[in-house]
Design a binder for these strands. Structure first.
Lengths: 237, 237
DNA sequence: TGCCGTAATTGGTTCAAACCACACGAACGC
DNA sequence: GCGTTCGTGTGGTTTGAACCAATTACGGCA
């Protein structure tokens, strides 16, 4: 699919260009558009394709490299080091020891309050960013891996939207654990196209509630999402 | 001052300019030429003084900030956060950006639930460890620094007592931020012997509630502690 | 005197251009 | 044939400029 849907069409968000590039590239990597171990386009090429300066592309690649998604070699190019099915990832060591129930408990503690704070504190720009991720989620048909990854990004944006860096840092640990959780693989197995459609409706409602600054509605959708995940988890046992 | 020995005169080393700036600035900071908490020259000024581009200065400042030697505030300037007599230096980078209110919000989210989980899940051995810390706290007369340290240990043991490694990891971030917050904010000024005595009674009651597996009682003491801290925080403003 | 709005200053972001050092391959010479 | 050389493409670094956003300082107005 790639996309030529540059920010030029509609909302151009100054100050969010690097994030846009990061989001675009990481999505392409996760969805295997750029396969593992594969070389991705040169910085100059990417800059031209995405309609941004090479500096901006470099900044984005810096962060992707820090996340361990790519590796660069001067003179050769940049290579994808992300393995979608790989158990190995640059996740924090704690994440490995976290059981699915413990993860769910932690989400139950953080997410409702996080949602409330985000609804109140998110800037229009952050809501716009959220809508971008939402459209990508709605475009997913059956690619469970991509959907899970986008789900994560969606949640991360909400955590960012609280404006509380400490909460964001904590929630990043939660997301690490969620990614690492061996049950996630099973979770993906349950992510049939039909079920994806259900989640899409849920996230759509959640986003609308956020955009409308409706705390109760947003909280309700968040709880539903949690309960749904919990149901799948228990079903597994 | 310091040096006008710019690379321009003679050896211009491409690829080493940023390092040169970092070296220069960090030396000035360590030697107190730029004292702690002091504002250092603006990026534009530094660029001109050092004979490099502003971008280069920014790159250097980025790394100094990552090392925790400076802190930047848009519109205000960059400030030295390096403490030559610093006791602790290994705090997580996020901690620096966390405001006192944000810290309090996060504690308000985590601690009540943490308390409930701990009361239910703590092993006798963990309770024993908690009692040891408690006696140390009760032995403190006026050493606010020691008391704060023990308080932290007390809370950490409770977090451990939940048996949830993810929660513990998150709470460690909170404690990092709390430690950082105490360094800048003058919380210790308010920790008079009389106030320490009050806290000691509170923690004693909290411990007894935990030992008795009394969830409501423990929760109540935890909230009191939180509210007390909040009161001091507001008083500060 | 006190308050508010504007102007100046500061860090934050993005852009465009030029040059360097490294890597790889193709063309060349032996 | 084999090794060297050189060209081209790639990431790496630095520069200079322009604009944005947060903050502060100042001046005039009530």
């Amino acid at each position: 699919m790639a996309n030529s849907s540059l920010p030029s069409s509609g909302a151009y968000l100054p100050g969010a260009t690097v994030k846009y590039v990061i989001e675009t590239l990481s999505t392409r990597i996760v969805t295997q558009e750029y396969a593992s171990e594969e070389r991705l386009p040169s910085e100059r090429q990417l800059a031209q394709d995405l309609g941004v300066a090479r500096n901006t592309v470099r900044e984005a690649l810096d962060q992707l490299e820090a996340r361990g998604m790519i590796r660069r070699r001067a003179g050769s190019g940049s290579f994808v080091t992300y393995d979608p099915d790989g158990e190995n990832s640059a996740t924090s060591p704690v994440a490995a020891d976290v059981g699915p129930l413990q993860l769910q408990v932690m989400r139950g503690i953080l997410e409702p309050e996080m949602m409330r704070l985000a609804v109140v504190n998110m800037t229009p720009r952050q809501i716009e960013a959220l809508s971008v991720v939402l459209s990508k989620m709605e475009a997913v048909q059956a690619d469970a891996t991509a959907f899970v990854r986008l789900e994560e990004e969606f949640h991360r944006l909400i955590a960012e939207g609280t404006g509380n860096p400490l909460l964001l840092a904590c929630y990043n640990l939660v997301l690490d654990a969620r990614r690492q959780s061996f049950r996630t693989a099973m979770y993906r197995r349950h992510l049939t196209p039909a079920r994806i459609a259900i989640y899409q409706r849920g996230y759509n409602g959640l986003f609308n509630a956020i955009a409308a600054r409706d705390i109760e509605e947003a909280s309700e959708f968040m709880k539903l999402s949690l309960i749904e995940d919990q149901r799948i988890l228990l079903q597994e046992d």
